[in-house]
Design a protein around this nucleic acid. Structure first.
Length: 571
RNA sequence: CGGGGUGUAGCGCAGCCUGGGUAGCGCACCUGCCUUGGGAGCAGGGGGUCGGAGGUUCGAAUCCUCUCACCCCGACCA
């Protein structure tokens, strides 16, 4: 491709509304342009990177035995009503009516459609295992789209769905996908972790997320330093205390704490560390108040509590509810004397003589103790793990915290959708059975964004060769110099012959201008054809990542590029 | 949806509050000259319903009311 004939609108200045580096660089490199909130045009460079990821995904999915199809973006409401997600999905589902007033939605995911397809066509155990996938634009009317392609409303996703005769076979399908995903992200050149995850609104029995490690990631994940355990903080298990601290219970004490509400304020005021305090959070679970008790330095994990209570909606209580439940304004809640359900974190079980709120204005209690002073309905793991917590799986390890970008998610669905949509088959004995499903997503655009998040410097993007829009850029420094022009053209055509994807910068611009653009758009290899070196019969080969420069003869440069590209693409 | 902020040329911004009166700067763009190893220089030029509607006023980017959009912080997710 000739740069002068192409469409790469780079910009020098960083757009003010782009927060994260991948968003800034994708805009500056002319890869994407915003059309509306969370909705983007993909320009040539962005599209090429996306196609690269798509192709890697496609190859690995095919290798794993999955079969590509394409389902519609517009889906009829009936299917969603059948799975009961028409009501459950909420406002993220973009709904509308056609001219006959029939209801439709833009597909945010395709469990319903694919299950409908399969239930019509798959009748026998002989037709499974079956794994169908597609690469297609999804629409989710996100509350807050942000970070460019990282969280758009319309986004390109690979979604796959497996169909198996029973749970054991479904486990095998899941495992195949898990391994395919590892290969995919390895081939993309990403540093990532596969972590245990909560299943969320998709539902199902268990799942793993594939997290690209990046400080800008929206998810917190933990991994064990000594074993394989890794999990999303939403899911990560905390160990309870080994044995309770042995301490004689001291007499309960009431202390005035004028206007001291937060853990920090009370801690400072009383000179008691937060780890010796218990905080009492008032929540509402499906309209019923619940109090959660946590060690002062721990945070509530709402997902764990929600799963524990089995409620549909769990939210922090408003001021009125807090006052009603505790008899005191916000900031002085404590478990002593409460009439509502109290769930305590496991860590609280090991505590003695701690500080809590006194359920009255400006009052806290010291030397509070379990059983003597109050009872707990239930002990459970309801907190977020923190850096340094012991690993829940092995004896020796401590948990490390990371930030991650979720680029892929594999779910074991079980029979949630097949039962709702009556997707059944006849087994060898002629008995009707329910199909076991799994579903597997990869955010294609997000993967590109995550890659840029991990691969950039002050000059711009540094694409790994497998997903770079072009492998190599040939910068002809002065196109008005016939010798330079001819040499650049020759290299360009030779590289094309060798199957290298090459961009020829044949614009009539100054060298610095071309270098800046080449760096910004992140082409991994650059051949510079300049008058001085050319007079010696040499051109320069520069590696974008390392900055290493080799002075080579024309043929040598072409050969080097060919070799390096082949090495990088070798799988 | 709650809290905060911003809308002025393609991009980045000043002007507004605190004096209501010609709409400005840098980059980008067009023409010419010059220049060709890290976003050059000189000269000339084009481009604005100042987010929208209403109001106050002789006169509004500026003051008032309403509205829309976008961005940031919290609950969702690939």
């Amino acid at each position: 491709m000739r740069y002068s004939q192409y469409f790469i609108p780079t910009v020098k200045e960083t757009p003010s509304d782009a927060e994260v580096v991948s968003h800034q660089l994708m805009l500056r490199a002319g890869m994407i342009r915003k059309l509306a909130s969370g909705i983007y045009n993909y320009l040539p460079l962005g599209l090429r990177a996306i196609r690269k990821v798509e192709n890697i995904v496609r190859e690995e999915m095919n290798r794993a035995g999955a079969i590509e199809i394409l389902m519609p973006a517009v889906q009829p409401a009936e299917l969603w009503q059948e799975s009961e997600r028409w009501e459950q999905y909420g406002r993220e589902l973009l709904r509308f009516r056609d001219r006959k007033d029939a209801e439709f939605c833009m597909g945010p995911t395709h469990e319903e459609v694919v299950t409908d397809l399969v239930r019509r066509e798959v009748k026998s155990y002989r037709q499974m295992p079956l794994n169908l996938y597609q690469i297609q634009a999804k629409f989710r009317d996100e509350i807050r789209p942000r970070f460019g392609l990282m969280r758009g409303r319309e986004f390109i996703m690979k979604d796959a769905y497996s169909f198996d005769v029973d749970e054991k076979a479904a486990d095998l399908s899941y495992d195949k996908m898990y391994r395919a995903y590892r290969r995919i992200f390895e081939r993309c050149g990403l540093r990532f972790r596969a972590v245990e995850a909560d299943t969320g609104s998709i539902g199902g029995s268990y799942s793993h997320e594939f997290m690209v490690l990046a400080d800008s990631g929206e998810d917190a994940i933990v991994s064990c330093a000594s074993c394989e355990y890794a999990a999303n903080v939403e899911k990560a298990e905390a160990r309870g205390p080994g044995a309770a601290v042995h301490a004689e219970p001291r007499p309960l004490e009431r202390v005035a704490t004028p206007d001291k509400r937060s853990i920090e304020e009370v801690s400072d005021f009383l000179g008691v560390p937060p780890a010796m305090m218990v905080k009492s959070l008032v929540l509402v679970a499906d309209n019923e108040p619940v109090v959660a008790l946590l060690r002062g330095d721990h945070d509530l994990n709402e997902i764990k509590l929600k799963n524990l209570l089995g409620c549909a909606v769990l939210e922090m209580a408003g001021d009125e509810v807090v006052t009603k439940v505790t008899g005191a304004p916000v900031g002085f809640a404590g478990p002593v004397g409460l009439k509502v359900k109290v769930v305590a974190d496991l860590a609280v079980r090991g505590m003695r003589n701690f500080v809590t709120g006194g359920n009255a204005v400006d009052l806290h209690l010291k030397n509070v103790n379990l059983e003597r002073d109050f009872m707990v309905s239930r002990f459970a793991d309801i907190r977020n793990v923190v850096h340094g917590d012991p690993c829940p799986r092995c004896d020796s390890g401590a948990l490390e915290m990371w930030r991650g970008i979720e680029v892929g998610h594999v779910f074991k669905l079980g029979t949630k959708y097949s039962r709702a949509l009556k997707a059944t088959y006849l087994d060898a004995a002629g008995q009707e059975q329910t199909i076991f499903m799994g579903c597997y997503g990869i955010g294609i655009g997000r993967t590109v964004a995550a890659c840029i998040e991990q691969n950039n410097d002050e000059n711009g993007i540094i694409f790994p060769i497998p997903i770079a829009p072009f492998h190599c850029i040939v910068s002809a420094l002065n196109v008005k110099d016939d010798a330079v022009r001819a040499a650049a053209e020759e290299i360009y055509f030779r590289l094309i012959e060798e199957g290298v994807e090459v961009l020829l910068d044949d614009r009539d611009e100054r060298p610095g201008f071309k270098f800046k653009d080449a760096d910004l758009i992140g082409i991994p290899l650059r051949i510079v054809v300049g008058g001085k070196n050319l007079a010696e019969g040499k051109v320069e080969l520069k590696d974008r990542r390392s900055g290493e420069v080799d002075l080579l003869a024309l043929e040598g440069a072409v050969e080097q590029v060919k070799v390096r590209v082949a090495e990088a693409l070798d799988v």
